[in-house]
Design a protein around this nucleic acid. Structure first.
Length: 323
DNA sequence: GCTAATCTAATCAACCTGTGGTTGATTAGCTCATTAGC
C-alpha cells in the first residue's frame, strides 16, 4: 500500500508537531487519512528512524537527539489503554500460536475475525508470546543447549510449520543448527567441487563460526512472492570480515529448471553431478582464517565461467562434457 | 510482577526509475529490548 500525497502531507504535518503520537492522535489520523491506526504507527516508526538517520547520520546506538525527542514527547500523549484479553481470546490465540508462531496476514485476519481483536493487537500478542517463550526456553535449556543443537533458542520460532518444506528459500527460516545443514547442502549444489579449499569448504568453515542464523522475516517470506531462481546468501557475519552478499542462480545446469516454486523442496538442492567428492561429513573442516580470499575468489570465478560455458538454457538437462 | 504496548534498528519486497533509491511492512531484542497499566 502506497500512501497518496494528501495522506503524506497530513502525516508529515503531524510528525513535525509530535513524532511520538499517542493513541488518540493516531486514531484521529486514521480517520482523517483513511488508513489504519496500525499503519499510522508503522509510518511514524519508519519516519523517526529514517529522518534520524538522514539528519544526524546516527548509524550506531542511540544518539542524543533520539533520547531528547523521547524525553520531550514521552508523556505528552497517552498510550493505548492496556487490553485485558478474555480467556477465550487467549485460548484461540494460544492454539494459533502452537500451530504457527509467525502468522501471516491471512491467518491474522482469520484470528481477528474469530476473536474480535484488532490485527495490530494480534501482531503485538504474537511478538510478546515469542519473546516470552524464548525467555522461558533460555531458562529451561541453558544447561543442555550445547549438547542438543535443536534446543538452541529460535529453533522452533524460526520454523513456521507447513512452509519450510516447500519454500525455496526455506533454509532462511531454519534454526542455526538446521541452517548449517541447509547451507551445506546448498553449497554442495552451487559451489565448485574438487577444490582444495573452494567455496564449499569456505562455507563450512564459516558456518561453524556463525553465532546464530541470519535474521529472517518468516511471515514475509511466506506471504510474498516466492522466487525460486535466486537465493541470497548472507555472509556478513564471517569472522574474516569479508562481506559477500551474493545472489546465486539456484537452478544450476545440473538441476532441472525451476518453473513452479511450489514444486520445490529442500531435497531439490542437489549436489552437482560433477562432484565426485565424498560427503561433506567425511572431510576436514578448514579454519576460515587459513583461507586466502583471493584464491577463493579465483576458484569461484573459474567455476562460474565453466558452468556458464556449459550451460545451454534451452536444454532441460545440462550439456555433457565433450572431453 | 505480569504482560500489553511501544520503542529502535535491521531487513525484506514491491515499486518506480533506470540497476539503485524509496517506502510500507515485519521482525528481534541475548547473558534474556523498554515502558507502563493493571
Amino acid at each position: 500500500m502506497i500512501l497518496n500525497e494528501s495522506q503524506k502531507d497530513i502525516l508529515n504535518e503531524w510528525f513535525e508537531k509530535n513524532p511520538y503520537p499517542g493513541i488518540d492522535t493516531r486514531d484521529y489520523l486514521a480517520k482523517v487519512t483513511g488508513i489504519s491506526e496500525f499503519q499510522i504507527l508503522t509510518w511514524f516508526q519508519n519516519q523517526r528512524t529514517r529522518r534520524r538517520r538522514q539528519k544526524y547520520k546516527c548509524n550506531f546506538g542511540k544518539c542524543q537527539t533520539q533520547v531528547q525527542d523521547k524525553l520531550q514527547f514521552k508523556h505528552e500523549e497517552a498510550r493505548q489503554i492496556r487490553t485485558n484479553f478474555t480467556r477465550s481470546q487467549i485460548k484461540t490465540l494460544t492454539q494459533a500460536h502452537d500451530k504457527n508462531h509467525f502468522p501471516g496476514i491471512a491467518a491474522r485476519k482469520q484470528l481477528a475475525k474469530q476473536t474480535g481483536i484488532s490485527d495490530k493487537k494480534i501482531v503485538g500478542w504474537f511478538l510478546n508470546q515469542r519473546a516470552w517463550h524464548q525467555h522461558q526456553r533460555i531458562g529451561e535449556t541453558s544447561g543442555s543447549m550445547a549438547e542438543d543443537p535443536h534446543q538452541i533458542p529460535h529453533a522452533s520460532d524460526q520454523l513456521p510449520p507447513n512452509n519450510h518444506s516447500t519454500n525455496p528459500n526455506s533454509f532462511r527460516h531454519l534454526s542455526p543448527s538446521n541452517a548449517v545443514i541447509s547451507k551445506q547442502s546448498l553449497a554442495s549444489a552451487l559451489f565448485p567441487p574438487l577444490t582444495p579449499f573452494g567455496p564449499q569448504d569456505f562455507f563450512r568453515g564459516s558456518m561453524s563460526q556463525f553465532p546464530r542464523a541470519k535474521r529472517v522475516q518468516p511471515s514475509q517470506a511466506v506471504q510474498r512472492r516466492e522466487n525460486c531462481h535466486v537465493v541470497s546468501i548472507d555472509t556478513t557475519r564471517l569472522s574474516m570480515g569479508m562481506t559477500l552478499g551474493v545472489k546465486i542462480p539456484l537452478c544450476t545446469p545440473n538441476q532441472r529448471q525451476c518453473q513452479d516454486p511450489s514444486e520445490h523442496t529442500g531435497s531439490e538442492i542437489l549436489p552437482s553431478k560433477h562432484s565426485t567428492q565424498p560427503p561433506p561429513d567425511s572431510q576436514q573442516w578448514l579454519d576460515l582464517g587459513q583461507i586466502d580470499p583471493h584464491l577463493f575468489l579465483q576458484h569461484w570465478d573459474e567455476w562460474l565461467q565453466s558452468v556458464i560455458a556449459e550451460w545451454d538454457p534451452c536444454e532441460r538437462t545440462p550439456v555433457s562434457r565433450k572431453n
